[in-house]
Amino acid sequence: MNIFAHHLLVLSAVLAAVPNVGAAELSVVAHPQNTYDTMDKSQVSDLYLGRTHLFPDGSHARVIDHPRDSDIRKEFFEKVNGMSLNQVNAYWARMTFTGRVLPPETAADSQAVQAIVVDTPQAIGYVPDAQRQPAVKEMLRLQ
């Protein structure tokens, strides 16, 4: 069973890697007044997987995600913690149905994400680096 699962994982990783070839860099953005200027990948991953709702200094974070099956979301998780979109969705399905934890709110696109981030000091989101607006502060670049 383990071996089978391993094969599946390898296969899915290979399949997932194919469309990302040549994709653009992503930026994790936050409100310019945010206490921190940078964050690492695990801190970002924990916020997006619901392991924590707080920034390291203890202030509450408002995590903004992209739509469930959007390409950028797929790309984001691949880059931030290596999870496939299926894995992420399954994870959140368990968290939602059994753990009674709601997933992050979603915005329609990068524009909408940045609009919320600009307006909200506790907010954090991600956008393609090319579409990043100067009003937001880049906390982490994902290549």
Binding site: R51, T98, G99
Partner: peptide
Amino acid sequence: VYAKNILI
């Protein structure tokens, strides 16, 4: 355990 979720 990952999410330290008691319910799960």
